[in-house]
Design a protein around this nucleic acid. Structure first.
Lengths: 145, 145
DNA sequence: AAACCAATGCAATAAAGTTGCACCTAACTA
DNA sequence: TAGTTAGGTGCAACTTTATTGCATTGGTTT
């Protein structure tokens, strides 16, 4: 069985917006659909270049809003820019929802590796985890052929 | 037994420079000693503000050189700036040397968690790992009291 | 001592992220 | 329905971080 690279929601975008208590607006719809179509973690720059009729700051603020409402999570993959990916069903962006990401240093794509749950880690005394950023990097299956 | 937060080298700086085949220069000595004293992952900005008589670009290039020579590894902790930490003994910055990092969102310190080895992960077909960036974030033991 | 090469400092620039403000639109209220 | 309000959007400016070009320095080699 192939490992799962990206997860899908059983809900429609409209449902998600309702569940996450966020008004549906033109920019939000376009950004959401764009992320959903691509099924990868994307940078602002990348999104911006495709949705060129939208303003950068609008996309930026939309992504920020999505993060606040846990529709999207951010990944710092070392590429120099923050990547944004749609949260999976049930994702509350807390440590139990964590999964690994894979950054391809050749094509610069960032994948969510949903079949690689992050093993529970026991931290030193006094440390309290609230979030995590787990990025493996190397060569993806597309570039490795 | 307390978990280990940061590791130490059994070699002197001079030895390290020899082993890693790098000439000892004034800036390199100062930057190395600074990192060694602090035993944390530090940003360029932070280092720069303390070693104020050195030029930013000199520190920047020194850190880059250290990274190339595997004296230092970088961590992207989501703080907005790259952090640099001394490699541990035997570290070749390959996947088998990986360890978790902990970023405290309060004091913004980044620790190396050497006692938390990254479990080996089996990637989807075709993916080849060469590096990793593992950052847990939350509250550190200092700020949690 | 002259030549050479790498390291350093200064300054400029690029790239990424962020914010202030005015305008617009859609929802709410009287 | 008209007036009011709040949030969303676009434009432009700006901050912060990362990076590079170039001239100078300083140590090493011949």
């Amino acid at each position: 069985m192939e490992k799962q690279i990206y997860g899908f929601y059983n809900y429609s975008m409209t449902d998600i917006f309702k569940i996450k208590e966020l008004a549906s607006t033109p920019v939000r719809v376009l950004v959401y659909e764009y992320l959903n179509e691509h099924q990868k973690a994307l940078s602002l720059k990348y999104i911006e270049s495709d949705l060129y009729d939208l303003d950068r700051s609008s996309i930026f603020r939309t992504l920020k809003t999505f993060v606040d409402h846990k529709i999207v999570h951010t990944i710092h993959d070392g590429s120099g820019s923050v990547k944004y990916a749609l949260c999976q069903e049930g994702c509350n962006c807390d440590p139990s929802d964590l999964h690994f990401h894979f950054y391809c240093t050749t094509c610069e794509a960032t994948y969510c590796l949903l079949d690689l749950p992050v093993p529970s880690v026991s931290l030193p005394t006094g440390f309290v985890i609230s979030q995590a950023n787990m990025v493996l990097s190397g060569l993806c299956n597309n570039c490795n052929s």
